[in-house]
Design a protein around this nucleic acid. Sequence first.
DNA 1: CTAATCCCAACCTAAAAGGTCGGCATTATG
DNA 2: CATAATGCCGACCTTTTAGGTTGGGATTAG
Lengths: 137, 137
Amino acid sequence: MRISSRCEYGLRAMVYLAARGDERPVPLPEIAAEEGIPAPFLERILARLREGGLVKATRGVTGGYQLARESAGIAVGDIVTALEGPLSLVGCVPDEEACARAESCASRVVWRRLDEAISGALNGITLEDLTREAVPR
Amino acid sequence: MRISSRCEYGLRAMVYLAARGDERPVPLPEIAAEEGIPAPFLERILARLREGGLVKATRGVTGGYQLARESAGIAVGDIVTALEGPLSLVGCVPDEEACARAESCASRVVWRRLDEAISGALNGITLEDLTREAVPR
DNA sequence: CTAATCCCAACCTAAAAGGTCGGCATTATG
DNA sequence: CATAATGCCGACCTTTTAGGTTGGGATTAG
């Protein structure tokens, strides 16, 4: 149970984009250099974020990446979900069919609570919060 | 970011032990059969739980496993920690040295919040709660 | 003594993590 | 138009982790 570096990098890149403003696209090499992320790896991360509708890219010589919408509208949970798939930690929580014992399973209660705690924490913080260094409580 | 089956199995085994009462040791094969866990794998899981001081084993022909203390004194977080190591999701939260950018890192705030949410959820439920099907809120 | 149990080290396979590489498509600029 | 900076994409690679299995030894009640 560990956060992947893909996810750490992805969040940092998004925070960088948010902090950098939206005037013009930010080229990938700049993000990679500033944040110390291997460029080819970052490329694959940004691809996922683009597929998830969180960033938009413009090609060509003055191209780069921008947030797809205002930073207040992007929660950390959105980023993690785009990079890692559904937040849920065990298969049986969203999908009752996944386990034959589901209805009588006391453990399931635990994992559901954990899922709620995680979603709550991640969906409660937006990129805007992070750039203002003011995280809501 | 997924719960390992080691962890799922471990929790289920602990719940089984708690529900089974403390009269006499429960043999591993029984737990394995009842919970549908591969016996040799369960053996390794119980080894960790024993090293973590959560169960005690008695050897010999009427031997088996028992909770090391009353079920009200064992939180789910204890079990996960014994099986997976510290709950923390990223290195830089407990150990500031792990990342050169730590002090200026906005992302770090996120991971810390997440850590707190997870610890809170897991440490707030004990085995006793689970056997009574009454989970505190 | 025997059989059921726990204990332990070594090994195995498949999948995921964490990248890298090479080439193509797009586009502003000279 | 040629060029160079960018994004896009599929294939590949290496290391670590997950999820076990195997084979044997040590204990102990009957």
